[in-house]
Simulated scan of single mutants.
Amino acid sequence: MELDDAYANGAYIEGAEAYPDRWAALARDFTFAQTARGKARMGVPYGTGAREKFDLFLPEADAPRGLLIFVHGGYWLRFDRSDWSHLAKGALAHGFAVAMPSYDHCPDVRISKITQQIAQAVAAAAVLVDGPIALAGHSAGGHLVARMCAPGLLPPEVAVRLAHVMPISPLSDLHPLMQTSMNADLGLTEEEARAESPLFQPAPAVPVTVWVGADERPAFLDQARWLAETWGCGHVVAPGKHHFDVIDALAEPDSQMIATLVGG
């Protein structure tokens, strides 16, 4: 369809086909090590569905400084929490616990349902870890963490704890996706596209930094810029990064991304 190429990432990334296996292997090794050390709680339920679970990784300190929740991408169609565990490394090094939820995929559910699932996951993880809450999400996950800033979506006692929200390469306006072949599975209507687009939410009071790779597709650079300009929030365009490696900095304790999310 008209915008298929605009929202195709892998076709413009050298070696793109190797990334999913690489992510899975890194995540598998990290999870094994954390579990062996007693620093992982796997498959914590936040709802009754088979995919309504999150993994919780704990820092060395007995009392975490706070909680980072990372929401993965995949156009609401693919991947789950087990592919991204290694990205917890950066925040763990700063004493934060890290929760990583799975969620149902389209076309089994609508995007609006996934938004509600992530709100449930954030609320459930917040019960287990005290302190400030940072949210980060990539691509479709960037959309989902931005949606958490909508008034009334999170319980008040959870919303007040939000310290930073970072949509990474987010989809902030869903209307263009209606002009892609993905919409056969996403099932977006005009009404849902507007209701589920962070671009049309009120600008939040919580600190937000929109992050995107400088080498991403123009459509994703636009999506990030639209949100940053509309919300009047932070906007980082990371040099030399594309859609698949822009998230690597989450695993790096000394990265600017981690410093922005959880501080020193």
Rank of each mutant, 00 (worst) to 15 (best):
D173P: 04
H86W: 12
V129G: 05
P132T: 12
V208M: 08
M166P: 00
I168M: 10
A134D: 00
Q179E: 13
E196Y: 04
S102L: 08
Y103E: 01
A97T: 04
I114M: 08
M148L: 13
G137P: 04
H94L: 14
T115I: 15
L162W: 03
V98C: 12
D104E: 14
Q179Y: 14
A184V: 15
I118V: 15
E191S: 08
P202E: 15
R110I: 03
L162V: 07
M178Q: 09
S169T: 09
Q117Y: 04
P132W: 13
A88M: 03
L128H: 07
E157H: 12
I118N: 01
K113A: 15
W84C: 00
C149T: 15
C149E: 07
S102F: 12
D108H: 14
I118L: 11
T180W: 08
G141Q: 06
L153I: 13
P107R: 04
H86R: 09
M178L: 04
P202K: 13
A126R: 09
M178H: 02
V71D: 05
P170G: 09
A121L: 02
E190H: 08
H164F: 07
F70D: 03
F70S: 06
E196V: 03
E190G: 03
R81G: 01
P198N: 11
V145Y: 00
K89L: 12
S112I: 11
G152R: 14
P155G: 10
M148V: 01
F96H: 11
P207W: 08
P151G: 10
L177W: 00
G90E: 02
A126I: 09
C106A: 15
E190P: 06
Q116G: 14
E190Q: 14
I114F: 02
L87V: 05
A119I: 10
R161A: 07
H105V: 11
A126H: 10
F96W: 13
V160E: 14
G95R: 10
L87I: 03
G74R: 04
R78T: 14
A91V: 12
V160T: 15
L87G: 00
P167R: 11
I168R: 00
L135A: 06
D104G: 05
E191D: 14
G66E: 02
F200Q: 07
S102G: 13
M182V: 11
L135W: 06
P156F: 08
V127D: 13
T180M: 09
G74K: 00
A97N: 09
I118C: 07
A136I: 07
R194H: 12
A88C: 08
P151L: 12
A159D: 06
L67W: 03
Y75I: 04
I118K: 00
M178F: 02
L68F: 04
I118Y: 04
A146H: 11
A124C: 03
H143Y: 10
